[in-house]
């Protein structure tokens, strides 16, 4: 369980978090989304007791991170973004070390379990320094899981993994998320869409939106986007289409095509098609694109993105 109330963090004059508030229940996987520097890592570091907030309160696994930091740290598993590991150590020795720091009664057994969970049993006797990025990530995850924490906090867990490993990792996370609380940060939106029960998008230290991935898509984007390509005077046509009730955000693309959105349930396509044929235009193409979480993300964090790349629609 995680409950964050009005969490604020200043780094000198720069405010990294602006009174953040959110909640994560047991058995819930929360995705933390945001551009670089949005405050994801800062929030996670506060929740794991690595640094204190400037103001506000955070309760993790029933304990206050400020006042009962040690109790919180006993119950939290954390995978930092950089996956810091001791390169000169043997994998199983390192995990045993972490298990001992956490006073696990049966360190050897827990090490074997954790290694098994992340599928690294056969590399148990190898040096950490010789592992690939993806394998390090898995050892980092094993380290976070070794004490079977109530709350698991993962900072960009899938970065640097190959597609096969990503699928595996998601499986592990979903497994864990069944009875524990998982908070993971990512900027891969499809990942959040696939594994998270709820997504929190933050930007510049503020929560922009918080919802389930499905609702986000339905609520924010609203609807469908239509790309239209005709032969003829696009400007004139554009003016006509604008008249149609339900058409939103009409714009013409540099490649000559027109683009607009409509709300679900108000399908304007037949009417638009009628205008085109009646007006004597030749229709080359009409297709609908459904907005992805990616678009929502860009929309919501607009100011942050310096030059949003125009997606080629054709």
């Amino acid at each position: 369980m995680i409950r964050v109330t009005d969490l604020t963090k200043d780094y000198g004059p720069r405010r990294a978090l602006h009174s953040l508030s959110f909640e994560a229940r047991q058995g819930e996987i929360i995705g933390f989304l945001g551009p670089n520097g949005a405050g994801k890592t800062t929030t996670m570091r506060i929740l794991t007791g690595y640094m204190p907030p400037t103001s506000g309160e955070a309760i993790v696994a029933g304990y206050n991170v400020m006042e009962e930091s040690i109790e919180v740290r006993k119950r939290v598993g954390y995978l930092p973004e950089t996956v810091p590991l001791y390169n000169e150590m043997v994998v199983q020795d390192f995990l045993k070390f972490m298990a001992e720091l956490r006073h696990i009664p049966n360190p050897e057994e827990s090490v074997a379990d954790a290694l098994n969970m992340v599928g690294m049993t056969e590399r148990a006797k190898g040096y950490i320094g010789n592992l690939s990025k993806g394998m390090r990530q898995r050892i980092g995850l094993a380290q976070a899981l070794i004490h079977r924490p109530e709350v698991l906090i993962l900072d960009e867990p899938s970065i640097g993994l190959d597609p096969g490993q990503v699928v595996e990792l998601r499986k592990i996370i979903r497994e864990i998320g069944r009875e524990r609380t998982v908070l993971l940060s990512t900027h891969i939106l499809s990942e959040a869409q696939q594994i998270c029960d709820r997504v929190i998008i933050i930007n510049k230290g503020k929560i922009v939106v918080e919802d389930t991935p499905e609702n986000l898509q339905a609520r924010l984007v609203g609807g469908e986007r239509v790309v239209l390509r005709v032969r003829g005077d696009a400007a004139e046509l554009s003016a006509k289409i604008e008249q149609v009730k339900g058409v939103q955000r009409l714009k013409s693309n540099p490649d000559g095509s027109l683009e607009f959105e409509y709300l679900p349930g108000h399908d304007v396509r037949p009417e638009v098609a009628k205008i085109i044929t009646n007006g004597g235009y030749e229709m080359l193409e009409m297709k609908t694109l459904s907005l992805s979480l990616e678009d929502i993300f860009l929309e919501l964090t607009k100011e942050q993105v310096v030059t949003p790349k125009k997606k080629r629609r054709l």
Binding site: G49, Y50, R73, P80, P84, N87, M98, L101
Partner: peptide, 14 residues
């Protein structure tokens, strides 16, 4: 430098 301090200080170590 390597960041392993973060690992130790987020474990229950004073």
């Amino acid at each position: 430098r390597t960041g392993t301090l973060e690992l130790l200080l987020t474990a229950p170590v004073r």
